[in-house]
Amino acid sequence: MKIEENYFGLVDDKTVFTYSMSNNNGIKAVLTNYGATLVNLYIPCKNKKIDVVLGYDNLENYMINPKFFGATIGPNCNRISKGEISLGNKQYNLEQNDNENNLHSGEKGFHNVIWDVSINEDENYVEFYHYNLDEEQGFPGNSKIKVKYKLTEKNELVISYEGLSDKDTIMNLTNHTYFNLSGHSNKDATNQELWLKSKYFTPVKDSKSIPTGEIKSVKDTPMDFTTTKKIKSQINEKYGQLEFCGGYDHNFIIDKEKEGIEKIAKLSDENTNITMEVYSDTPGVQFYTGNFISGGPVGKENIVYEDRCGVCLETQFFPNSINIKNFKSPILKAGDKYESMTIYKFVY
Rank of each mutant, 00 (worst) to 15 (best):
C77T: 15
S81I: 02
K82Q: 14
G83W: 12
E84I: 15
E84D: 15
N93Q: 14
L94I: 04
L94E: 08
Q96R: 14
Q96Y: 02
N99R: 08
N99T: 00
N102S: 15
H104T: 03
G109N: 04
H111Q: 14
N112R: 15
V117N: 07
S118K: 15
S118H: 03
I119V: 12
E121T: 02
E121R: 00
D122S: 08
V126S: 00
E127N: 01
D134G: 06
D134E: 04
P140R: 15
I145R: 05
V147K: 14
Y149H: 06
K150R: 15
T152Y: 08
E153R: 06
K154S: 13
E156K: 12
V158C: 11
V158I: 15
V158D: 05
E162C: 06
L164V: 15
D166Y: 09
D168I: 10
M171E: 10
T174E: 02
N175Q: 14
N175D: 10
Y178H: 01
Y178K: 02
F179E: 01
N180K: 07
N180R: 05
S182E: 11
S182I: 00
S185N: 14
A189N: 07
T190G: 01
E193H: 11
E193D: 08
L196K: 10
S198G: 11
K199I: 02
Y200I: 06
V204H: 09
K205G: 05
D206L: 05
S209T: 11
P211A: 10
G213P: 05
E214G: 01
E214C: 01
I215N: 14
D220I: 02
D220S: 12
